[in-house]
């Protein structure tokens, strides 16, 4: 089953053509990794999927992204609804500094009008457990979100994303600011999450792509060079450029 289908996607920053005619189809409840050298458009690509690209001044998008068969760029669609159903975890952990750990997780719900304390308590506990952070923070839910370590902050951000019950989760190099132990924890988490969520992960780390993903796509200079099962991409790439990148000859 395909969850997200991208058709002829172009993205621009004023007059820079950042993504050129991307076609890709993302399978439901699988992990799709996006690899490629810096500046190839990986982050821009996933930011188009939750309509966050257009928030940047002078950024533009053309083409279609079908989410459950509906074009998210059609004028009938509210980007706020899209962002609720397609969550995102950023490169650097970015908890809200003035909110407590509890409120960080509850923010997406509270600020969308959910008020019942019991429900919130339940969701906060559940999502913190899913993010494997509950045991570490259960006694200090009122402490500031930024008092945690980097790896904990990133898991807090994952819990925050899970709390709004998205169907797809976009990870934008979620481990690039973390040490190997925190990285392992996040990877394990992604592995568990794919049972229930469709996951797209941008990564600089090819071992990481090989470890966590079912499908891999290779981007270069704003174009999609190759897309296929992770196993195939890493063992028998069809394109010479993919092979060169994977074997470390550039990038």
């Amino acid at each position: 089953m395909e969850k997200v289908k991208v058709e002829g996607l172009n993205a621009y920053f004023s007059n820079i053509h950042a993504l050129k005619g991307i076609n890709i189809s993302i399978k439901e409840k699988k992990v799709t990794a996006i690899i490629g050298p810096s500046g190839c458009g990986k982050s821009t690509f996933i930011r188009c999927i939750n309509r966050l690209h257009e928030v940047v001044p002078h950024a533009k998008v053309s083409g279609r992204i079908l989410f459950d068969g509906k074009d998210i760029y059609s004028s009938a669609i509210d980007p706020i609804e899209i962002r609720r159903r397609i969550g995102m975890v950023f490169q650097r952990p970015n908890p809200f500094p003035v909110l407590s750990i509890y409120d960080n997780v509850a923010a997406g719900l509270k600020l969308n009008g959910m008020k019942r304390k019991d429900d919130l308590d339940e969701i906060v506990e559940k999502t913190l457990k899913m993010a494997a952070l509950w045991d570490e923070v259960k006694n200090k839910l009122n402490a500031s979100g930024v008092s945690l370590s980097g790896g904990q902050q990133q898991r807090l951000c994952i819990a925050r994303t899970l709390a709004v019950k998205p169907e797809v989760i976009l990870f934008d190099e979620p481990c690039s600011a973390l040490d190997p132990i925190s990285t392992a924890k996040i990877e394990e988490l992604i592995f568990q999450l794919k049972e229930n969520y469709t996951i797209i992960i941008v990564t600089h780390n090819m071992q990481q792509a090989a470890r966590v993903s079912d499908y891999t796509s290779f981007f270069l200079l704003g174009e999609l060079v190759e897309f296929g099962k992770t196993q195939d991409i890493f063992t028998a790439p069809k394109d010479k450029r993919t092979e060169a990148y994977i074997t470390g000859r550039f990038g």
Binding site: L52, E81, R83, G87, M88, F96, A107, G108, T161
Partner: peptide
């Protein structure tokens, strides 16, 4: 920081 705003927007907050 912009990252804080984007984090909020990405949660589907208006």
């Amino acid at each position: 920081p912009r990252t804080i705003r984007e984090a909020a927007l990405a949660l589907g907050i208006s």
